[in-house]
Design a protein around this nucleic acid. Structure first.
Length: 712
DNA sequence: CCATAATTCTTTTTT
DNA sequence: AGAATTATGG
C-alpha cells in the first residue's frame, strides 16, 4: 500500500511539495503529525538521504511519537534520523563543537534549580536584598534575555530601572559562574549554537549542507532564539517546512512569538501556504465548543475548522460544591467509563496548574484507580536523585562547584558552612575550583573519595558504577539505617534511577557517564522511560499539547484559576489563556467533561471563585448541566440545601420568578428543585427550567409558566 | 556543627 | 497548606 493513500487533497499537497519554503497552517486535529511523518517518509522514498533531514518538535514525547510513526512507515531509516527538540538538537551541535565554544569536554548541564542556587549566591555576595529583588524573578528575566539573544553587555546599556540594573549585574556574573563551572544552562543549548553559527561561517555551512531538508513542528511557539537558529540553518537551501496553528500558541510567557508564523512569508519569499481545515479527531459538539471559545479572541484570523464526525455526546458540566466534591465527581465518572469498557489510558485529567494534581492524585489512590502524572514535580527533582546526580557530576566534572557544595556534606561528614566559606576564599585566591582548593581536613577525605570514584568511572558499566557511588558515598547506608517509610521511598527512587540508567544502557549501548549525564538533563520526566501502563493520565494543559484522548476531564474551570489570576490584567494574556482552553478542548475525541468548584482550598485558604468565563463562551445547548444530582428523598434535599449556602448564581431576569436551587412543586411529579434556568430573551414566556424531581421522574425540562408548577 | 523550632515565602504554564 | 529558609540552643 502506498503511504500517500490515506491523505486528503491538502495533506497530499503538503507531503509532496518537495523543494522550497512551505508553511502548513494546521488546525487542531487536522492530521498535522501525519503530514509531517508522511512527508519525511516521502522525501526518503524520493531519494533524499535520511541523514539530510532535520525534524524539530516541541517535546521529547512528540519527538518519540514522530520517530515511531516514521518507523512504521519506512522502517529502519527512521532510526538514524535527527528527530529531536530544539534543545537536544542544540546539545548535539555543542557536543560536536565544544572546543570552539571554549568548553572542556566534560561540561555538564545545570537545571533551573542549579541556576537559582547560583543566582542566590551571587545576590548574597553582592549584598543585594532578596526580599526586594526576588531571585526567581531575576532567573526568569535572565532566561528570557538569553532567549532574546541579548548579551550581558548589551543589556547593561539598556537597563533602565533598579530591577534591571540588578539583573544586569547578576547576569554577567551568572554567565561567568557557568563558565567557571564548565557548565551550561538550558538556554545555552539554543544560544551557543547560534553564537557558533554566527561566528564560524564554515561550521554553519557544514550543517546547512547536512540538513538540506528541515521540518519544524509547532512553529507558533518558537521564540527568538529558536527562530534565529532555524533561519540560520535554512537560509541556504530554504527547504523548510513549518507547521503550526496560531490559535494554539501557548508559550508567550517563555518568549514565544506567534508572529513568527505570520512573518514566515516575509522571511521566505515564494512560500507555499497550505491550510488544513478538516478535523479528524473530535465530535462536532466538541469542535463547536472549541470554535465558539476561540472566536472570542479579538487578535486572531478567522478560520473554518470543521469535522465530519458524529455530533456525539453533549459536554458534561459539573459545578461542584467543593474541591473534594469535584474530585469525587471525576472519579465517579471514571469508574462509570471503566465499567462501560473504556480503558484508563484513554482518559486524561487536565488542569491549569501543577498544584491541582495533588487532590486528584489522592482521590485516585483511594479509589484504587491506576494513574500516571506526566510532568509536574519531576522525578529528577527529588532530593535523593539530585544528590546522586550531583555526585555523578562532580565525579565527571571537577570544576562543578555547585554540585560539590551540594554533596560535600551528604551524608553528614561534619563539614559545615564555615569550612565551605574558607574553601571558597582559598579557591578565589588561587583561582581554582572548590575541588582543587581542598587540601586538608575532613574535606580531604571527600576529595579522595571522589578521586577514587573518578578513576573507576570508565572501568565499570554505568549501573554498577552508580551502585558503587551509592555505596562508597554512604548515601545508601544512611537511608537503610533510617528505617522510616520516607527513607524506604527514597531507596526505591534510587533503585528506579538505576533502572533508568539500565534502560539507557540497553537501548543505546552506551555506558559512559558523560553521555548519560547529558542525556538525562534533557529528560524532563521519567514517564517516557517507564513502560506503557493502562492508567488514567494527569497533566497540565501545556503538557497535553499535541496529544489526544477519548475522554477529557478539564477541571478547575474557575476565574482566577483558569484564566489564571496573573493573566487577568492583560488582554494579551487573557487571549493566551483562551488559546490554552482551546488546546484543552481540542484534545478530546469523544466526550468532554468540564468541572469546577464553588469553594476550593487554595494556598491553605478557602476561596470562592466565579465560574470561568470560558464556560459561558460555550453555547448552552452544547452543555449538559449535570450540576445537581437527581434528588432521591427529603434527606438529600436537606443536604443539597446546605450545599447551596454561598450560592451566587442568581438569574437576575425579573421576568423569571425561578432561579437555580429554588424548591418547586409539580402536580404530577411532586417536589423538585431547579437545576438550571434556560432563558429565552426574545420571548420570556418561553423560558425553560430544568428541574430535578424525585425518582422515578428524574430531571425534566419544563416551561416555567406551566400551570402545574409552583414555587414552594 | 547540627537538630529542632520558628518564621517566611510561595503559587502559572516548560525545554 | 507546605516548602524553604533562618534562628536558637545544645
Amino acid at each position: 500500500m502506498n503511504i500517500l493513500d490515506k491523505l486528503n487533497k491538502q495533506q497530499l499537497e503538503a507531503v509532496t511539495y518537495k523543494n522550497g519554503p512551505l508553511l502548513v497552517l494546521a488546525g487542531a486535529g487536522s492530521g498535522k503529525t501525519r503530514v509531517l511523518t508522511t512527508r519525511i517518509a516521502h522525501l526518503i522514498e524520493e531519494g533524499v538521504d535520511p541523514d539530510n533531514i532535520l525534524a524539530i518538535t516541541f517535546t521529547n514525547k512528540a519527538a518519540g511519537e514522530m520517530k515511531s510513526r516514521i518507523y512504521s512507515l519506512i522502517g529502519y531509516f527512521a532510526k538514524t534520523m535527527q528527530i529531536s527538540t530544539f534543545h537536544s538538537f542544540g546539545l548535539r551541535i555543542i557536543k560536536e563543537n565544544f572546543e570552539y565554544l571554549g568548553y572542556d569536554k566534560n561540561f555538564v548541564i545545570f537545571d533551573s534549580d542549579d541556576s537559582l542556587t547560583i543566582i542566590k549566591k551571587i545576590l548574597k555576595e553582592k549584598n543585594i536584598d532578596t526580599t526586594e529583588f526576588n531571585p526567581r524573578a531575576i532567573r526568569a528575566k535572565i532566561s528570557s534575555l538569553k532567549n532574546e539573544l541579548i548579551t550581558p553587555e548589551k543589556f547593561k546599556r539598556q537597563a533602565f530601572n533598579d530591577f534591571e540594573d540588578v539583573v544586569s549585574s547578576v547576569y554577567s556574573k551568572y554567565e561567568d559562574t557557568l563558565n567557571k563551572n564548565n557548565s551550561l544552562d538550558f538556554d545555552d543549548l539554543l544560544v551557543l549554537p547560534i553564537k557558533l553559527f554566527t561566528a564560524k561561517k564554515d561550521i554553519l555551512e557544514k550543517y546547512q549542507e547536512k540538513f538540506k531538508y528541515i521540518l519544524i513542528d509547532e512553529y507558533q511557539d518558537t521564540n527568538e532564539a529558536q527562530y534565529k537558529l532555524t533561519k540560520l540553518l535554512a537560509s541556504k537551501y530554504k527547504n523548510i517546512c513549518c507547521v503550526g496553528d496560531v490559535d494554539q500558541a501557548i508559550y508567550g510567557f517563555r518568549g514565544a512569538n506567534y508572529r513568527n508564523i505570520l512573518n514566515f512569508e516575509k522571511d521566505y519569499p515564494n512560500t507555499k501556504i497550505i491550510n488544513l481545515e478538516e478535523n479528524y479527531r473530535s465530535t462536532k459538539t466538541i469542535l463547536k465548543a472549541a470554535n465558539s471559545v476561540i472566536s472570542h479572541n479579538v487578535n486572531r484570523k478567522e478560520k473554518n475548522l470543521f469535522s465530519n464526525l458524529d455530533i456525539g455526546d453533549k459536554i458534561s458540566y459539573y459545578r461542584a460544591s467543593s474541591g473534594l466534591d469535584e474530585v469525587n465527581f471525576v472519579i465517579d465518572k471514571i469508574k462509570e467509563l471503566e465499567h462501560d469498557g473504556v480503558s484508563y489510558k484513554d482518559i486524561v485529567i487536565l488542569y491549569r496548574t501543577n498544584a491541582q494534581s495533588r487532590t486528584f492524585e489522592d482521590g485516585l489512590l483511594k479509589a484504587n484507580i491506576p494513574y500516571k502524572i506526566i510532568g509536574g514535580v519531576n522525578f529528577y527533582n527529588r532530593l535523593e536523585i539530585k544528590n546522586l546526580l550531583a555526585y555523578l557530576r562532580i565525579i565527571h566534572n571537577p570544576l562543578d562547584d555547585v554540585s560539590l557544595e551540594r554533596v560535600i556534606n551528604v551524608p553528614k561528614r561534619g563539614i559545615g558552612s564555615k569550612t565551605i566559606s574558607n574553601l571558597a576564599i582559598t579557591a578565589m585566591e588561587e583561582n581554582v575550583s572548590l575541588f582543587d582548593a581542598i587540601k586538608s581536613g575532613k574535606e580531604l577525605q571527600f576529595k579522595n573519595l571522589i578521586n577514587e570514584l573518578r578513576e573507576k568511572k570508565d572501568t565499570l558499566p554505568l549501573v554498577d558504577f552508580i551502585d558503587l557511588v551509592l555505596d562508597k558515598s554512604g548515601i545508601k547506608k544512611e537511608y537503610e539505617s533510617e528505617k522510616s517509610l520516607e527513607a524506604d521511598v527514597r531507596l526505591e527512587n534510587l533503585e528506579e534511577f538505576k533502572s533508568v540508567a539500565l534502560a539507557f544502557q540497553e537501548e543505546t549501548g552506551i555506558i559512559s557517564l558523560e553521555d548519560f549525564l547529558l542525556n538525562i538533563s534533557l529528560i524532563t520526566d521519567n514517564s517516557e522511560v517507564k513502560e506503557e501502563k493502562n492508567a488514567v493520565n494527569l497533566m497540565t494543559i501545556h503538557a497535553v499539547k499535541g496529544l489526544e484522548y477519548d475522554y477529557v476531564f478539564l477541571v478547575g474551570m474557575e476565574e482566577n484559576l483558569f484564566p489564571h489570576t496573573n493573566s487577568l490584567m492583560n488582554d494579551e494574556e487573557i487571549e493566551e489563556e483562551r488559546r490554552l482552553c482551546y488546546v484543552a478542548i481540542t484534545r478530546c475525541k469523544k466526550k468532554l467533561y468540564l468541572t469546577n468548584a464553588r469553594i476550593r482550598l487554595l494556598y491553605g485558604q478557602e476561596q470562592i471563585n466565579p465560574v470561568s468565563r470560558f464556560i459561558s463562551e460555550i453555547d448552552d445547548d452544547l452543555l449538559d448541566n449535570v450540576g445537581i444530582k437527581v434528588i432521591f428523598n427529603d434527606e438529600d434535599i436537606k443536604s443539597e440545601e446546605k450545599k447551596v449556602i454561598n450560592q451566587e448564581e442568581v438569574y437576575n431576569n425579573t421576568e423569571v420568578t425561578y432561579k437555580v436551587n429554588d424548591f418547586v412543586y409539580h402536580d404530577t411529579f411532586g417536589p423538585g428543585k431547579v437545576v438550571s434556568v434556560i432563558e429565552n430573551k426574545k420571548d420570556p414566556s418561553r423560558t425553560l427550567l430544568k428541574i430535578a424531581f424525585k425518582l422515578p421522574y428524574g430531571v425534566k425540562t419544563l416551561v416555567y409558566s406551566h400551570k402545574n408548577l409552583r414555587k414552594v
